[in-house]
Amino acid sequence: MSAPLSPPTPDVLGEPWVQRRISLRPSPGYDGQPEAVLVHRRETTSRQAVLYLHGFTDYFFQTAHAERWVAAGIDFYALDLRMSGRALGERTRPGDVRDLRDHDEEIDAALDAIRADGHEQVVLLGHSTGGLVAVSWVDRHPGQVDAVVLNSPWLEHNGPWAERVLLTRLIRLLATWLPSVVVSHLDEPYGRWLREQGWDYDLAWKPVEGFPMRAGMAASVRREHARVARGLAVDVPVLLCCSTRSGSPSSPTEEELRSADCVLDVQHMVDRAPRLGPDVSVVEIDGGVHDLALSPGPARETYERTAVEWAAARLAAAQQGSA
């Protein structure tokens, strides 16, 4: 039995958006009773839906992007994962997730709710860390969704060999004994640039400097990276979208900030894509930034059109195949 959801209540985004809180099982190491929050439009009209999983130091606020899916006849749901966004509450260690697989509980509950709302086909949409969570979950839960869309997924650590190999070993040791110890911080330029572009979001839930990365979370991410490197068996079509180039995370130029991924290495995404499953398409978006849904207009339009049209076509093909 999946975790219970509260009745819909008005969301901070205003009408027509509502939220349902998901009460999760108490787990060792978590600050108080963990919960997640499912956000969606008050009225759903389609038998198709997308479930969005945000990245690290993030939450759902991209309503304009959501409306593109709704306009195509695909209802939009978003999950604020435990220790993030709407699910933070008064917790003092935001983002302190000990194992990415802990998110299975809220994903299962969200999908049960989406099915209960009458949706027969579901696309899982993941950004950055949410993309890693998405492919890991689908690999371990075959037959549960119909397609996967990845927006700049975090499939490998963006750092030199010493960090990817030697530091990973140290972090694994730390995670065993001191899982909440801070091991790194995000770089600030990308977050500052997003605010300068006028994107309006809650800085308590998505601070410019990001949440600190802690040992338990970092070790879990690296475990999932290793699984991706060995090869997954995602059983549904996957679309991976990313920028055409990477920029410097710590000291990007202004031109890189507005037209490159200044958080992750896009070559890692392209290289890892064939290892996700047998049916993976890669589309590189010229001028895209890390969150392609927050890119400057032309790149954002290209990404949204590509993702929505691809998903609609794959869902239609799957429907015909099952008829």
Rank of each mutant, 00 (worst) to 15 (best):
P207E: 05
E209V: 04
E209K: 12
P212L: 00
M213V: 13
R214C: 09
R214I: 07
R214A: 07
A219D: 04
V221N: 11
V221T: 11
R222F: 12
R222K: 01
E224M: 06
H225P: 03
H225A: 01
R227T: 14
R227E: 14
A229C: 07
R230V: 15
R230W: 09
R230F: 08
L232F: 00
L232W: 02
L232M: 08
L232T: 07
D235S: 06
V236E: 02
V238F: 07
V238M: 06
L239N: 01
L239E: 08
L240E: 03
C241L: 01
C241T: 03
T244F: 05
T244V: 10
S246Y: 10
S246H: 14
G247I: 00
S248T: 06
S248Q: 10
S250Q: 13
S251G: 14
S251V: 15
T253W: 07
T253E: 12
E255S: 10
E256D: 07
L257H: 01
R258I: 01
S259L: 02
D261M: 13
C262V: 00
C262P: 04
D265C: 15
V266K: 05
M269H: 08
M269Y: 11
M269D: 08
M269F: 14
V270I: 02
D271F: 02
R275C: 15
G277F: 14
G277P: 09
D279Q: 08
D279I: 11
V280L: 04
S281H: 15
S281K: 15
V282P: 02
E284F: 04
G288I: 10
D291M: 15
D291N: 15
L292C: 04
L292Y: 01
A293H: 03
G297W: 15
P298L: 09
P298R: 00
A299W: 08
T302P: 04
